[in-house]
Amino acid sequence: MKKIIFGAMVVVAFAFAACNSKSDRTAKQDHNMENMESSIPHAIGDDSSLTEIKASFIHVDPKVASSIKQIVNHYIHIKTALSNDDGKEAANGGKAMAAVIAQFGKSALTAEQATLYNQNEEDLKEHAEHIGENEGNIDHQREHFIMMSEDVTALVKGFGAGRPIYNAHCPMAKNNEGAMWLSEAREIKNPYFGSKMLTCGVVKEIIN
C-alpha cells in the first residue's frame, strides 16, 4: 500500500519537474551570413620563429575596442582555468564571454569590421555557451576551446586586444593534429593538457 502511494507521488513529482523545465532557447538563429570570405591569414605559419603581427584595423571605436578587450579577457580567463584543469572557472569565463557577445554594440563597426565580426560572432558565442554549460566535462570544454581560440585569434588580428597577445601551438593536442591558443604571456601553460603536459607548446606569433 505504502509503496503504491509512494509510486504515485514519484510519478506526480516527475510530471511537475518535466512541466517546469521550460526551454528558454530560441530556435531561430541569425541569417544572411553565409558565403562570406575571410581576409584573415592563417593563424599558424610553417615558420617556427616568432613573427610579429599588427592588428589590421587602425581606427576602432572605443566602445568596440572595450568589448573586444573584454572578450579577450574572458578568453584568457578560460585559457588559464583550463591549464589549471579547472572546469568550473572555465565555465564562469564562458558565461561571461557569452554575455559580452550578447551585448556587443555592432552599430559602431565599420563595414569591414562588421564582416570580420559577423563571421565569428555566432560561432564564438556558441563555444562560449558550451564551455559555460559543461563545467563537469573538461574534455568537452577543451574541444570547444580549440575552435574558440581560432575565432578569438581572428578577432584579435583584426581589432587588437589592447596588449600584446601570444599565439602558441601544441602539436600533440587534438589527437596529434595540433591546435593553437592565445596567451597574455610568452610562457607556455598548455590549456589542452593542463597538469598532464603543462609546458607542451611553442610560441609562434606575437600580435600587437
Binding site: 541569425d30 563571421q119 560572432e121 560561432d123
Partner: peptide, 15 residues
C-alpha cells in the same frame, strides 16, 4: 538543425 544548416555562417557550418 540539418534543415537550417545553410542559414549558419560559414564558419559555424564548418565547426
Amino acid at each position: 538543425n540539418f534543415d537550417e544548416f545553410g542559414s549558419y555562417a560559414i564558419k559555424k557550418q564548418y565547426n
